[in-house]
């Protein structure tokens, strides 16, 4: 029975290592959070690691919400130092952080991301308004007669939505509800279109939940297809099916501009310059949050922050813009960079 003789020491040694680990420190930065910020955070992490000779930070893609949960769980080496987010921290998350002892949080806005509605180059480019996006993709839409009531969305083709649009079937591939891109698309494009109906807009003040459920519900009859978090897959599917549209972040359009084109939304082209100038309506700010308590404990946090907020990274011609991040105006960059240098913390949200 050699195996039995072996088993006991093995279990014991695993248990021993486990205890040893829990007590040890950590010599690398641990970053969690949004999958949208992930491509940018990883580039900075890699450059930081290679140029300083320190260990490259570990960057996990957990989604914005998942990152906040891990980040706010407490202070100590077993908790992450930084969380990325494709939206601002919510008040509820801020409070949870406070309760768990994460009281000093530094907020850093890093730039903007555009969300595009794109299709294959083999089809003509489309020009839609946010209202038309809402009418094409919402679960229930206002009665066309103008009465203040909702009917199930019966629009089969884009032409049904507006007569100047093509008579192709509405078929939009997009991210699942767990994704920050989906949140932003729903809030900026769908809600933006939804608010153009005065009686729904009036509802926002009276019954916020009802307003949200009207504006944020996406149809489930097959016109909107949840294609998973993999944006490359959506790009491939658009190539194969020229009638379909896809919803994803600007960096994927940027990298695949030979195959797909972004639709104009409210007559605005989703180009780098246009998003940076604030003309394109479906764009959102990206953030990361730092635990001040970890800055002096984990080696390299301060240098990492300096690298991220340097002009060669997030500037107009920095390496992040090459990866598809839309830089902030210079003044805004200056403000956040000085916040980071002074380690100024959020007092409330």
């Amino acid at each position: 029975m050699i195996s039995l003789k072996l088993t006991l020491p093995v279990i014991l040694s695993v248990a021993a290592t486990a205890t040893a680990v829990a007590a040890a420190g950590r010599d690398y930065i641990s970053i969690v959070g949004s999958s949208t910020v992930y491509p940018f955070a990883t580039v900075v992490a890699e450059r930081f690691g290679r140029s300083t000779g320190m260990k490259t930070p570990k960057v996990e893609s957990t989604g914005s919400g998942g990152g906040m949960k891990l980040f706010c769980a407490g202070v100590g080496v077993e908790h992450p130092d930084i969380t990325n987010s494709s939206r601002r921290m919510k008040a509820s998350e801020f409070n949870k952080c406070q309760v768990n002892g994460v009281t000093d949080i530094i907020e850093v806005k890093i730039g903007y991301d555009g969300i595009v509605l794109a299709n294959s180059k083999r089809s003509p480019q489309m020009n839609v308004s946010r209202k038309e996006i809402y009418l094409a993709l919402a679960k229930e839409i206002p009665d066309p007669s103008g009465a203040a009531k909702l009917i199930p969305n019966q629009n089969k083709t884009w032409k049904d939505v507006d007569s100047r649009l093509p008579a192709t079937k509405i078929e939009v591939l997009g991210p699942p509800p767990t994704s920050g891109t989906r949140d932003a698309f729903v809030e900026l494009a769908m809600e933006g279109g939804c608010r153009t109906f005065d009686w729904i807009k009036a509802m926002e003040k009276q019954d916020k939940n009802k307003y949200k459920s009207i504006c944020h519900a996406i149809r489930e009859d097959g016109a909107f297809i949840e294609a998973g978090e993999n944006d490359n897959l959506i790009v491939q599917k658009l190539e194969a099916n020229p009638a379909a549209f896809g919803v994803f972040g600007f960096s994927f359009l940027d990298q695949n501009a030979d195959k797909i084109q972004g639709s104009l939304i409210d007559n605005q082209d989703p180009s780098f310059e246009n998003i940076a100038a604030g003309g394109y309506s479906v764009s959102r700010p990206l953030y990361f949050y730092v635990k001040k308590a970890h800055v002096s404990v984990i080696p390299g946090v301060k240098d990492f922050l300096a690298e991220f907020t340097s002009d060669k990274a997030w500037g107009d011609e920095g390496y992040l813009s090459e990866k598809g991040l839309i830089p902030m105006p210079e003044q805004e960059r200056g403000k956040f960079a000085s916040d980071v240098r002074g380690l100024n913390v959020l007092s409330s949200l």
Partner: peptide, 12 residues
């Protein structure tokens, strides 16, 4: 599932 540049040197 994380971005890790350094080749790990042990199981920890």
């Amino acid at each position: 599932v994380a971005f890790i540049v350094n080749v790990p040197e042990g199981p920890l």
